[in-house]
Design a protein around this nucleic acid. Structure first.
Lengths: 242, 242
DNA sequence: GCTGGTCAATTGTCCTACAATATACACCCA
DNA sequence: TGGGTGTATATTGTAGGACAATTGACCAGC
């Protein structure tokens, strides 16, 4: 028998069944063994394959659902389907997280709006270089909607979100687009609290100016127009800040 | 009996028990009925109070764990404890999400590094205005570590992350700090692949220059120094990009 | 006073069964 | 022949109970 010299005993951390199942499934999806939209085996089958019980499988699947990797649908044609994970889903999760942190009090709306400026000005700049015709069309369609609407339309913030998000993605940088959508969404509750007709009109005029600069591929003009727009708009979004 | 004119019948969406429990607990925490660090009732008790079974409660709690709102510890003194949710937790979740999206192929590292530039230059600028002495001390201590280490130190990326994160939070904007930490973390795998002694030394010199500008409250100089540093560093982080 | 073992509360996992759900398909009636 | 209608069925959702694992607290003994 070897003398007690326990050379290099590994002692890898014990992992609970639930985590092992979750990790294996996550890896399988990320490695492409299950493509987007594919249906993974039913829970009973997975339980058999992993040698664990169905509740354990369910907890693992639940974690993947929370992570946005899969979605579950009940019914005979149901099952666990691999989600198409895109920057959009990141944006959604991000804005939810920011909401809770703001609500907890560990983040101010003012900090979010400050980041908005940091993100949206370069976005306008890059959009002037990289925009496609579809991007321009999207911005125009939002502006048309804004023109047609009235002050009591509850969807006014939604239009604004769509406009700025369109510019974000027109920058050609999907991460930048996702960030902009998220920070914009998180500032919604504090925005357009008492929008007047004049404010709405001026907002639309500024939007038009931004699109014009982007369409004619003038990065500096686009950045300047966006800067001016944010200057104007953000003063209406923080009733209780300086 | 009223003539069949069913005026304004509600038909609110049916909600599953699991979601109701999750929503109620989430609201209770966010409304402050449970403070940070508080222990909520054991699962059996919650099941009784809600009138559902323990598995249902467990699924709801599991979702809250995934959301980072609570953590669960086993054992006699265990239970579900309310997490202190901060921008840090957002940063963690964010970098994980970006990792998976990159792995799926819906995001390029190049896009992340581009956003890094957008975020870190204003951060340096603001840090020059808002930094505390503790911030400066933290940056200095990281630099000291970097000076002492050798090329084969596996923690080199970790030092760099800490340095840039310190600047992010020194900006006084917690969201900006969290974003910087996340994007920096997500670019780690592609960074410092073959760092040479010369590169390490130059990196340290640039770090020193950045701290000097921040400490002497020169926003423009800090921004310029950061810009130069990113120019230099990012060329070593993308072996397979132009 | 310190070390060690036992206890108890709580979560983790398992089993089994039933309820709810939603598609697919046959069926009936016009 | 066509369209709605009911029914079968596969799958997830919920239930309830039982046991294993974990870990701090308490207690006994040296």
């Amino acid at each position: 028998m070897p003398t007690g010299s326990d050379n290099k005993f590994k002692a890898r951390q014990v992992t609970r069944p639930r985590d092992q199942v979750e990790q294996q499934l996550r890896e399988a999806i990320l490695d492409g063994h299950f493509g987007q939209g594919d249906k993974l085996p039913p829970e009973t089958e997975l339980a058999q394959q992993f040698g664990v019980s169905r509740p354990t499988v369910r907890e693992a699947l639940g974690a993947l659902v929370s992570a946005g990797l899969i979605r579950k649908v009940p019914g005979v044609a149901g099952g666990s389907f691999v989600n198409s994970v895109t920057p959009d889903s990141l944006s959604q999760m991000l804005s939810e997280s920011m909401d809770t942190i703001v609500r907890i009090g560990a983040l101010d709306i003012a900090e979010i709006t400050a980041v908005r400026r940091v993100l949206e000005i370069p976005a306008a700049q890059w959009a002037a270089r990289n925009r496609s015709d579809a991007d321009i069309a999207k911005m125009r369609s939002v502006i048309e909607q804004q023109k047609r609407t009235t002050i009591d339309d509850p969807d006014i913030p939604e239009y604004d979100l769509r406009f700025h998000t369109a510019i974000g993605y027109a920058s050609g940088n999907r991460l930048l687009g996702a960030f902009i959508a998220a920070v914009h969404d998180a500032t919604h509750p504090a925005q357009f609290l008492d929008v007047t007709s004049d404010v709405a009109k001026k907002t639309i005029r500024q939007h038009i100016a931004i699109v014009a600069a982007i369409e004619s591929s003038e990065p500096e003009a686009a950045a300047a127009a966006m800067n001016e727009h944010l200057d104007y708009v953000l003063q209406y979004s923080l009733p209780n800040a300086s």
